[in-house]
Design a protein around this nucleic acid. Structure first.
Lengths: 274, 274
DNA sequence: TACTCCAGTTATAACCTCTAACTAAAGCTA
DNA sequence: TAGCTTTAGTTAGAGGTTATAACTGGAGTA
């Protein structure tokens, strides 16, 4: 991963760093990232507190390492799931793999997607790996789109189930009302107007978001159906995260239902049969 | 809220407790809950550290107080939004109010819905208030459902846009495949089977979840359309939280799109025009 | 007036992160 | 091989945290 350790000193250094990280993961798995203590790790390793500062400049640097590892692990899990899945189940398997990993490693998931640590800011490499996860989603959706296009034949772009986005909403076709959907203004310009039917409204807002996405700088390298795929990927991400994070935080306990079924319902809404 | 302070001593006590809480909120708003320091608060109030332990037994008790206040505040914001909205925009206004409050008080939102504090567990009253928020959602969806039913007339239960759930999925009608949707078993029983079309799959999984909900103990007091409304409310909650929490954690920064439009798209998918 | 109770104090223990200064050993180089 | 340089690990200590124990003085009460 890093530069190859040629010196025996450097090799030893990397080894100790790995051992520290191992203990750190154990602590994080036990009590979360905020309970991570360099002092305790040092004691566990038979060292004295300040010795660890030879290997990590400070606590944040160790946390960064953990965050990066977690990102890479989740990215790898996703990549493997996507690679192993038959095309028809790729989305579902991605979603399943993500939830399974999150449930098996709740603190790793929360380390990535949970409440940010106050003083801490993620390193650029984390953004890169996160972008890789996102890109996998986007390409998966783009792939589904192109498969549907070729299956339906050219010239046929309408009908139920078409398009790549969630909820059966097609790619952005035509203008629609509700251009400014920012809820931050308290004016509510069309509060008295007739509310559109839910289905149309979903189409309109989705199409508006896709148009907005098509104006945005890249972060997705896929070309033609990009906005639709990007929107679908973002929706996938937020819906999956919505269920997983609330489940991990324990907000479903005591409600008596199986979160797996809610998750399945949400994943199915994203175009992935589960 | 609590018992009335009749003694001047008790009154003074309540007053100091409130002042402590005020400083605590300022700290939380500034740097998050993990940066909350009883010592610093005491210094700010011109007291010495241990003095605060006369008012709060420990840090967790203060955090509990903050969590309860945040819950109550969000519940009140939701209740007010629902009361002020015309029926057709009730869902949208609920969603808007929630996001607005979350963006205005990110640390309060994360205090409730973010990564749980390691040793800390929410008090029963928090569950009660959270249940109130949920109940408001369920009744709102039940109300929408009954309004649609009366508008469509008895005997008419089909057609696009019917039902109360998100994605235009109706209430659980009829059996469907995919009974056991728990992704935790690694066996993947029907991996080789033909994947159903997305729309059918969404219906099937949603119906399965609704059937599951109808078997679950109450936590929702609404009677007839309960499972459909409960599912819709849960879906509302998880989708709204998915977008808000990722936005608050800064995961959208650098992606260049306006989260408000993604949020609007999601809210529209939930049957709320925004 | 006398008594009780309690807010707030200091001292202290046990943690934490992190810096400074020092020791000793390991490895490189002439 | 001798000497030099680099560095792992040490102790000491500053400054922070939560939290407890014991004490003081004043405020409210009987």
């Amino acid at each position: 991963m890093a530069s190859a350790p040629v010196n025996p000193r450097e090799r030893y250094r990397q080894q100790v760093r790995e051992e520290i990280k191992g203990h750190a993961w154990a602590q994080v798995a036990g009590s979360g990232a905020s309970a991570l203590s360099l002092n305790a790790i040092a004691k566990l390793m038979g060292l004295s507190g300040p010795a660890l500062y030879r290997y990590y400049a400070n606590r944040d640097e160790l946390v960064t390492e953990l965050v990066l590892d977690a990102y890479r692990e989740l990215a790898e899990v996703n990549r493997a799931a996507a690679a192993a899945a038959i095309p028809e189940r790729r989305l579902a398997d991605l979603a399943t793999a993500t939830r399974r990993w999150a449930l098996a490693n709740p603190h790793r998931y929360l380390l990535i997607y949970g409440t940010p640590v106050p003083g801490y800011s993620a390193p650029p490499e984390a953004t890169t790996v996160a972008g890789g996860i996102m890109e996998l989603l986007v390409t998966t959706y783009a792939e589904i789109d192109s498969r549907r296009r070729t299956a339906a034949g050219p010239g046929d772009g309408a009908g139920p189930g078409e398009g790549v986005g969630p909820d059966g909403t097609g790619s952005g076709d035509g203008a629609s009302p509700g251009e400014d959907a920012d809820p931050d203004d308290g004016t509510d310009p069309d509060a008295g107007a007739e509310a559109p039917a839910p289905a149309e409204a979903a189409d309109a807002a989705g199409a508006a978001f896709e148009r907005h996405l098509s104006d945005c700088p890249a972060w997705t390298g896929v070309s033609p159906a990009a906005p639709a795929a990007a929107r679908a990927a973002l929706t996938f991400w937020t819906r999956v995260h919505g269920v997983i994070s609330l489940e991990l935080a324990g907000h479903f306990t005591g409600m008596g239902f199986d979160p797996a079924l809610l998750y399945a319902s949400e994943v199915a809404s994203l175009g992935g049969a589960i």
